[in-house]
Every structure is written in C-alpha cells, then in structure tokens.
C-alpha cells in the first residue's frame, strides 16, 4: 500500500455516549490509514462500535477524542467526497427508484446526472426499474439501488455499513461479486463493515479486527488473495485458513478475559 496516496486517516478516534443508564464507551483510540483505492473491511462483534466509527467517518457524529482526515483535511461534517451505503438499503418508501436515486442531487440542488445514473442502473441490472417503488423490489434489488444512489454523486470514498447483512446467502454472494467488480472498475476507496468473516476475506485488501466495546483495534490482516476473486476463491485452502485464523483471533479475546 505504500505506493498509493493515503486517502483516509483515523487517528486515535474515541467516542463516548451519554445515555440514561450512564456513559457508554463505544470507541477507544482506534487508528487506521486507508490508501486511495483500497478496499478495507472492519469486523468485530455486535456493538463493538463499528457503525459509530463509520458514522464518524461520514461526518454524522462528532468524536470525543482523536480525529479523522480525508485527503489530509479533518472531517467536521458530511463531505461530498464520501457516500454511505446503509444497512437494509434505506430507500425512502414513498419515492420510486428514480426519485430515490436522485435524492442526493435534489439535496445538493444540482440537476441529476442522468447519463451516469442510467449507466449505473444498467451496470447493476436495474435498467427499466426506475418507476418501481422499493416495496416492489427484492432485498437484493433494493440494496443495488442504494449502491447506485451512493455512486451517482461520484464520491471518492464509499462507506458501507453492513450492507448485505439482511440478505439471504445466495443474494449476499451475488452482491459481494458485484461490489468487487464495481470496485475494480471504479477504484473507489471502500470501507466496508461486516460481521461475516468470509465476506470480509472475500472482499478486502486488509481487514481490521475490533474488540467488543469499547471498540479497539486488535489486529490487522493483509489479504493477499489474487484479484479478481470469484466464488471459487472461497473454497481454496488459503481462503479457509485466513477465515479460520481471523476467527481464532476474535474468539481468543473473551477466552483470555474469562481465564
């Protein structure tokens, strides 16, 4: 990664929440650097602060400590360079697909880039679905539409918050292939949050493993599987070994605490 420019820096990020039951320490001095065009996965147990981290990168949350830099500039609010893909597609049910995808342009008071949107819709196999409402589409189609929405404004960084967690296994596999293809074509910088280790190994250049709350960085794995990866990759011994190793690194933590 040393040959590529650093796109995203997270420097000692900490986050506390004040809740009715007291102070929750969500994120504890988490640091990482992501190169331009790199595909990074963050994994960890539920409630380890992965989403907090991502929302902070998107400028939706402030940090209690530390800082986040995009292209060397600190993130202090939503940034046009960054687009987010949410859990469960997060389409607006009262808008058809076309108007859902045009939402970012509407918000920025720009004319929608029709050529780009049509190209993206075609790319993800949703041509001709513009007049459909989200409820008329399958979960996979909804999530593909939300990826189009995020890419329509041509961000340089794509933040993905467990985007395929609610999909069935087959659709999920399909989406993983699609997102890798899109990444290879567009060379966006992607930070992808998941709690599926195989998904992370399949997609990532590097995997950042987080501990349970407060979320700390415990290990970083380099995934040296050749690109483009296909479904075949998942059956190779090296893939299986990587998954097992990462699984061990996560499982060791609670065992060590219990001892």
């Amino acid at each position: 990664m040393a040959d590529r420019a650093v796109k995203l820096v997270i420097d000692q990020a900490s986050k506390y929440y004040e809740t009715r039951t007291g102070r929750v320490h969500a994120l504890d001095r988490f640091s990482m650097e992501v190169a331009s065009g790199e595909f990074v996965c963050v994994i960890g147990p539920s409630g380890c602060g992965k989403s907090t981290l991502l929302w902070s990168m998107a400028g939706l949350h402030g940090l209690s400590g530390g800082r986040i830099l995009v292209d060397g500039r600190p993130v202090d609010g939503p940034n046009a360079q960054i687009a987010m893909v949410f859990q469960e597609a997060n389409l607006l049910p009262w808008r058809d697909l076309q108007r859902n995808i045009e939402l970012p342009f509407e918000i920025r008071r720009q004319p929608p880039d029709r050529a780009r949107i049509d190209g993206l819709l075609e790319r993800v196999g949703l041509s001709g679905f513009g007049a459909k409402y989200p409820r008329e589409l399958s979960g996979g189609m909804q999530q593909r539409a939300s990826i189009v929405r995020a890419l329509s404004v041509n961000p340089s960084i794509l933040l993905m918050d467990e985007p395929f967690g609610a999909l069935d296994a087959f659709t999920r596999e399909e989406m993983n292939l699609l997102i890798e293809e899109i990444w290879l074509e567009t060379k966006k910088t992607i930070v992808f949050i998941t709690h599926s280790i195989p998904e992370a190994v399949f997609l990532a250049d590097r995997i950042f493993v987080m501990s349970a709350r407060p979320g700390r960085l415990t290990r970083v794995f380099d995934i040296d599987l050749p690109r483009p990866r296909d479904v075949e990759v998942t059956t190779r011994p090296h893939f299986v070994e990587l998954v097992a190793e990462i699984k061990r690194s996560i499982e060791h933590k609670p065992a060590a605490r219990a001892a």
Binding site: P78, F86, W94, R108
Partner: peptide, 27 residues
C-alpha cells in the same frame, strides 16, 4: 434515524430533512 442520517450524509439541511424525510414519513 437511518433515513435522516442518509439525507444528512448528502449534506441536507435541517429544513431539507424536515421537508424531504420527516413530512413524508408523517403523512
């Protein structure tokens, strides 16, 4: 929260969030 965050992530103002998310949601 996720829909508000979505609009906010594209830089929506409080008024835009009100008009484009909260009102249709309440309709």
């Amino acid at each position: 929260l996720a829909k508000i965050a979505l609009a906010r992530s594209f830089g929506a103002s409080t008024l835009q969030i009100f008009l484009k998310i909260r009102i249709p949601m309440a309709m």
